[in-house]
Simulated scan of single mutants.
Amino acid sequence: MSLTASQIRAFSPGATAYKRADERGLYLEIFPNGSKLWRLKYYVGGIEKRIALGAWPEVSLQAARLERDELRLRIAKGEDPALTRKKNKATAKISAANTFESVAREYIENKMVGEGRAEATLLKARWFLDLLKPAIGHMPISDVDPQMMLAPLKKLEARGNRETAKKCRSFASRVFRYGAATGRCTTDPTAILKGALLTPQARHYAAILEPEKLGELLRAIDAFECYPITKLALKVAPHIFVRPGEMRHGEWQEIDFEKAIWTIPAGKMKARRTHAVPLSRQVLELLTELKAITGGQGYIFPAFHTRLRPMSENTINSSFRRMGYSKDDMTAHGFRSTASTLLNESGLWHPDAIERALAHGDSNAIRGTYNRGQYWDERVKMAQWWSDYLDDLRAGKAAN
């Protein structure tokens, strides 16, 4: 005999759970705590099985019967609903563990860290992930399609961050390729988005290119009052041609005072190649002064509050602002343009030697290795000439 709604409401909990049958395998189980759960009893291969259909009154009598009828049709076709439900739960659990965010973090922490990528590169990768997380971070990586991927990139683009949008797309592409290689997805939905993004505008770092103005800047650095390590960083930066991030992440163990060489590991270089920097007499004197302050362990230019982290990427630029130089006047990265321009204008040095000093990569690895050896002696002389030239400008001597 089938149940009625009034009967269901009237069922009271007992000392133990008990059942009340409806029809065609559907029944209601009443528990001592008062809860009432719908279940369906069915047979697969002669074996009795049961599956829960939800709790009353959230699942009404009519809804429970409809669910029962749908399940019985699937059972008649040879399906085991309980087994299907277990498989679906397992799949959902796996998908939840394979979200874009989880795969991206695995890519960063396992692959990128394992490959020895520079800390600055890791920080940028984590930043790109933070930008993408609100839109696709929670989604199973296999479910992300091109339109879903395009939405956060277009938001960045709308804010004027074209370069960031481009780099986020590139980062996401690497994550999807890693996901495909490890069996978490099958395609890279960013592959067809290249043409959908606006081309980033060329970025030029502000730099002082006139010798007289460079001399003024060097004198301003001498007169600038700040934290001693910051002051020495400002003094060293014009003499060497490394990128600001490479300078900030430099460690004392990379400096050979006897040979006057700073060897930067490949993991810290943009071109992923070890880069040797010849050090002039002036730079060695500044580093010796700095070593007496820091103790010569860990980072050459440590952060203000802890020696376990490098100097902030904003320290030198912030110092320029305090000295009265705007972001359109000079930047930390601008010292590279300054050196490149004035060294080339001097006519004293081979252009390839200058390029090698700036660690601009050569697409031909064999040629790059050959050039590094070929121009080393010239680079050593050029480094000393450049430091002497800066001293002359600082002293107000006329530039030739």
Results as ranks from 00 to 15, higher is better:
M382D: 00
Q253D: 08
A55F: 04
E23R: 14
N98I: 00
A196R: 10
I108A: 04
V277M: 13
E58Y: 07
L123S: 04
R174C: 12
A207Y: 00
R50S: 11
A125N: 01
S340Y: 08
M112H: 06
E355D: 07
S326T: 15
R336Y: 07
G54P: 10
N344E: 06
R372K: 03
Q384Y: 15
K36P: 03
G296Q: 00
Q201N: 14
A339Q: 09
Y107P: 02
E29L: 04
A118G: 10
L131P: 00
N314D: 05
L129T: 02
W252D: 00
A135I: 00
S2W: 08
N110Y: 10
A332G: 09
Q374N: 09
V113N: 14
T263L: 11
L279C: 12
L153F: 09
K89L: 01
L83P: 09
G34R: 07
F257A: 05
K231P: 02
E313H: 07
S337Y: 09
R174E: 14
P152Y: 07
G179C: 12
G296A: 04
A63N: 08
G14A: 03
G54I: 07
E246D: 05
S2K: 14
T199A: 09
L122Q: 06
P152N: 12
A180I: 01
D256Q: 15
K124Q: 01
L287N: 01
L287G: 00
T331S: 06
A15W: 15
H275F: 01
I366M: 14
Y375A: 02
E163R: 03
P238D: 01
D69F: 07
